[in-house]
Design a protein around this nucleic acid. Sequence first.
DNA 1: CTAGTGTGTCTGAATATCAGGGCAACGTTA
DNA 2: TAACGTTGCCCTGATATTCAGACACACTAG
Lengths: 78, 78
Amino acid sequence: MKTQGQPFRIYTPASLGAAIRHYRQQAGLSQADLAERTGLNRTYLSDLEQGHETEQVKRILRVLKQLGVRMTLEEADW
Amino acid sequence: MKTQGQPFRIYTPASLGAAIRHYRQQAGLSQADLAERTGLNRTYLSDLEQGHETEQVKRILRVLKQLGVRMTLEEADW
DNA sequence: CTAGTGTGTCTGAATATCAGGGCAACGTTA
DNA sequence: TAACGTTGCCCTGATATTCAGACACACTAG
């Protein structure tokens, strides 16, 4: 049983942040936990989840939209 | 509804770039075309397709991997 | 009440990135 | 051959981002 939730379709930095927050909370991790595990700053993760990580992600999403490509996030078995 | 190609699973900046290149070529666009349509610099797109747009994408992918989340790109009907 | 946890947010400094311009190499076509 | 289209790559200045560290607030447990 995969227990896969619904995939997230990513169109904006905000939706990316919301998806990340969802998966982080589902994993039972705090921002500090995840920051430590990824070697990233907690402030960065906070901003990321709120969609404040704008320019770079927006650029890529703009390219994908122009090409008619959809970005999806979903649980994976790796 | 067109035939959907196989989705791309994105694990690295290089695979993101390869997917973008695939879709751009499928759309019959040059880098310059796409740059104009997206308002981005052609050099940026060149780097992006080669996976040289590293840090930001790598950070996000690192977060997703840590959370057991997979990023996928595929054609969308919009 | 007090301590601890989680998160948002601020500052300033250090980095990373992008746009714009240009040039070389390559393949294709006339 | 020459002209053209495409792409990789270089440089520079300007901009955007990330980080560390700190603090406030809300909430919860003891």
